[in-house]
Amino acid sequence: MEEAIKKLLHGFRSFRENYFAGDSELFEQLKHGQRPKALVIACSDSRVDPALLTACDPGDIFVIRNIANLVPPYEPDSRHHGVSAAIEYAVNCLKVEHVIILGHSDCGGIHALMERTADRPAGEFLEAWLDLAEPAKQAVCRQLQTSSDTTRHRACEEASLVLMLENLLSFPWVREKVERGRLKLHAWYFHIATGRLFGFDRQSNEFHVLTEAEN
Results as ranks from 00 to 15, higher is better:
residue 117 T to V: 08
residue 93 C to L: 13
residue 107 C to D: 03
residue 124 E to Q: 14
residue 84 S to N: 07
residue 115 E to F: 06
residue 112 A to L: 04
residue 113 L to M: 09
residue 92 N to Q: 14
residue 110 I to N: 06
residue 96 V to F: 01
residue 119 D to E: 15
residue 108 G to A: 04
residue 117 T to L: 08
residue 106 D to Y: 13
residue 96 V to G: 08
residue 126 L to M: 13
residue 121 P to R: 00
residue 86 A to L: 12
residue 96 V to C: 10
residue 123 G to P: 11
residue 114 M to E: 09
residue 102 L to I: 00
residue 121 P to L: 00
residue 103 G to Y: 12
residue 104 H to R: 03
residue 93 C to S: 14
residue 93 C to K: 10
residue 99 V to E: 04
residue 114 M to T: 11
residue 125 F to E: 12
residue 84 S to A: 15
residue 122 A to T: 01
residue 120 R to K: 13
residue 89 Y to P: 10
residue 85 A to P: 07
residue 90 A to N: 10
residue 87 I to H: 03
residue 104 H to E: 02
residue 118 A to D: 14
residue 95 K to V: 06
residue 113 L to K: 11
residue 115 E to G: 13
residue 100 I to R: 01
residue 113 L to C: 04
residue 120 R to Q: 13
residue 101 I to T: 02
residue 122 A to C: 05
residue 111 H to M: 15
residue 111 H to I: 15
residue 108 G to P: 06
residue 114 M to F: 04
residue 123 G to K: 01
residue 114 M to S: 11
residue 85 A to K: 07
residue 110 I to A: 06
residue 97 E to H: 09
residue 119 D to C: 01
residue 117 T to S: 15
residue 104 H to I: 03
residue 102 L to R: 01
residue 111 H to F: 13
residue 87 I to E: 07
residue 106 D to C: 11
residue 114 M to Y: 02
residue 110 I to Y: 12
residue 110 I to L: 10
residue 103 G to S: 07
residue 103 G to N: 03
residue 120 R to Y: 07
residue 87 I to T: 03
residue 89 Y to D: 08
residue 112 A to K: 08
residue 106 D to G: 01
residue 118 A to L: 13
